[in-house]
């Protein structure tokens, strides 16, 4: 119980913190609108000039609203924060505090994520309805399964970013990892559905974690099938486990180093 109270307080504080930076929030919302608007126009033009396999225009727009929702919802400074904490040595001062660093960072970021999901979620729904109307064949009863997958995607992304940030224990400049990771998430799902990519890329991507951040949940929300659910959710769980192990492994490795040699 104490455990829960401690970390739920951290979540609450970071949630309040998010409200304070109103102009940041406003700017983010505007960027989201511009982004969706531009891509809506682009895809509308593409659908006018030819057929696109697997998605109707309406599904495509909703797909983008969802992937961007997850992208904006996931947006956190966790990579930079970890990186700085490690490089500045301030992580050493966090060791003797009565909380677990990883869970602390997670709780702190989680407050921001909840906030982002709520406001961007509302915006996404409004934008989608204005531009293309409701999702064809949408069943509200199946939405929780899509949301479940989205939560997995966000967690997976969070722990990978954290692990990459913690590689600063070992590497001078680890920004390259971050950039590559980020771009792979972009290419393997966020901008374009996985189904559009050439077959061989799809087959490889299905075994990699990147598509499970945005593609899997967005696809489940716009075109749910139990078949797909059974395929992607186990993979998400698997990669989530790997990312958590990776992050805590990096952390333990780093802490051992700190205790042995000092900051």
């Amino acid at each position: 119980m104490k455990f829960l109270r401690k970390y739920s307080t951290i979540i609450r504080i970071s949630l309040q913190n998010a409200f304070v930076y109103r102009s940041n929030v406003l700017g983010g919302l505007l960027f989201y609108i511009v982004f969706i608007f531009v891509f809506f126009n682009l895809w509308r033009a593409i659908y006018q000039s030819g057929k696109v396999a697997g998605y109707t225009l309406s599904q495509m727009v909703w797909y983008l609203c969802m992937t961007e929702l997850i992208a904006f919802g996931c947006k956190s400074n966790v990579f930079r924060q970890m990186n700085e904490d490690v490089k500045s040595g301030s992580i050493a001062y966090q060791l003797n505090r009565p909380y677990h660093y990883i869970i602390y960072q997670f709780s702190y970021t989680f407050g921001g994520i909840i906030f982002n999901l709520l406001i961007y979620g509302a915006l996404a729904i409004v934008l989608g309805l204005i531009m293309v109307g409701p999702i064809p064949g949408f069943q509200l009863s199946l939405l929780p399964f899509g949301i479940f997958s989205a939560v997995l995607g966000i967690l997976l992304n969070f722990f990978f970013l954290m692990a990459l940030g913690l590689t600063a224990f070992r590497l001078e400049d680890n920004t390259a990892f971050f950039l590559i990771y980020q771009k792979l998430v972009f290419m393997l799902g966020m901008f374009i559905p996985l189904e559009f990519l050439p077959g061989w890329i799809q087959r490889i991507a299905r075994w990699l974690p990147f598509s499970y951040v945005t593609w899997a949940p967005a696809r489940l929300i716009v075109a749910f099938s139990w078949d797909l659910f059974r395929q992607v959710v186990p993979m998400q769980l698997l990669w989530l486990a790997v990312s958590v192990l990776f992050a805590s492994g990096m952390y333990n490795y780093g802490v051992r180093g700190l205790q042995a040699h000092g900051g």
Binding site: I46, S49, A53
Partner: peptide, 11 residues
């Protein structure tokens, strides 16, 4: 990817 999906012209 976009052009290989539909070929031809976009906008």
């Amino acid at each position: 990817i976009a052009f290989s999906q539909i070929g031809g012209r976009i906008g």
